[in-house]
Computed example of a mutant assay.
Amino acid sequence: MPTSAASTSGIWDCHFHIFGPYDAHPLPPNPIYTPPPAPFAEIRAIHAALGIAHGVIVQGACYGNDHSALLAALDTADGTYRGIATIDPDIDEAQLADMAARGVRGIRLGLMSHLGGAPDMGQMRAVLERIRPYGWHALLHGQIDDVLGALAVLAPLGVPLVIDHMARVQARDGVAYASFARLQETLALPHLWIKLSGPDRITDGIAPYLDAVRVARALLDTAPDRAIWGTDWPHPNIRYPRPDEAQLLAWIRALCGDAATADAVLRHNPARLYA
């Protein structure tokens, strides 16, 4: 089981999914979506080619609460990868403890209607109380106004929260509007983190995602010690050509602008969060 400490020596991909292989890890009946196979071995090969040493597997909504693929992958990774689960408030304590021992470090709360919609606020609070003893964090995945609504309820609880994919803002809207100002204000809280991932998603897939730079830089400047990055491989539920992981890594390095900032975003910040 992966129990070794997280390393600051290598780059982290803090957001990707795995699907399959389906003969070993089939989807449940009537999944929310049915992605092509994207097994762990494939992303590990991509990581090796790019010099990425660590990663975070985010449970795909199509798997529901079946974490067998995620946990099997973590079991083979010798502590170099971590996991993000999806749980219900009434999850068995032994199951939570087993997940923690095998490398899970947080949960994802989905706010996107096409991925099942938002749980009610009472369920969200209850889930955060279940993970608090483990020191886990929660990802919030939704569009900016839905994220802000959830933050108003959850941020006062003090559990670390990570905002996924730059709150799914529209890059064409820029940064000078009320919701973005509220996002920056909330992000100043010391237990709030931002994931500078999904530049393709906020620019309608228009590479090299130049319109996303202003948004990402504003968020990075707000929380430079709590900003992380991920590829979002294999980029499920998009309607444009799949982004190239090498290009995404080049994008975040260019955004950071200097070696110290890049080291913080790609190495030191995630090593703290996923220890």
Score class of each variant (00 low, 15 high):
5 A>P: 02
7 S>N: 12
10 G>Q: 15
10 G>R: 13
19 F>R: 08
19 F>M: 05
24 A>Q: 15
24 A>H: 13
27 L>A: 08
29 P>E: 15
42 E>I: 11
45 A>T: 12
47 H>C: 09
47 H>G: 03
55 G>W: 08
56 V>R: 10
62 C>G: 06
66 D>N: 14
70 L>W: 12
71 L>M: 15
74 L>M: 13
74 L>K: 04
75 D>G: 13
87 I>L: 04
97 A>M: 02
97 A>D: 13
102 R>W: 06
104 V>Y: 01
105 R>Y: 00
107 I>H: 01
109 L>A: 00
115 L>F: 13
115 L>C: 10
116 G>I: 04
116 G>L: 08
116 G>C: 05
116 G>A: 08
119 P>W: 08
121 M>K: 10
127 V>A: 03
129 E>P: 06
130 R>A: 07
130 R>P: 01
138 A>M: 12
140 L>F: 08
146 D>T: 12
148 L>H: 06
153 V>T: 15
156 P>N: 05
166 M>A: 11
166 M>G: 05
173 D>V: 02
174 G>Q: 09
174 G>R: 05
176 A>S: 14
177 Y>M: 06
183 L>Y: 07
185 E>C: 00
202 I>M: 00
217 R>Y: 01
219 L>G: 00
220 L>Y: 04
221 D>E: 15
224 P>I: 11
229 W>Y: 04
230 G>S: 08
231 T>P: 01
233 W>D: 05
239 R>D: 15
244 D>K: 10
245 E>Y: 09
247 Q>T: 15
252 I>Q: 04
254 A>L: 14
255 L>A: 10
257 G>F: 02
258 D>F: 06
271 A>G: 09
272 R>S: 06
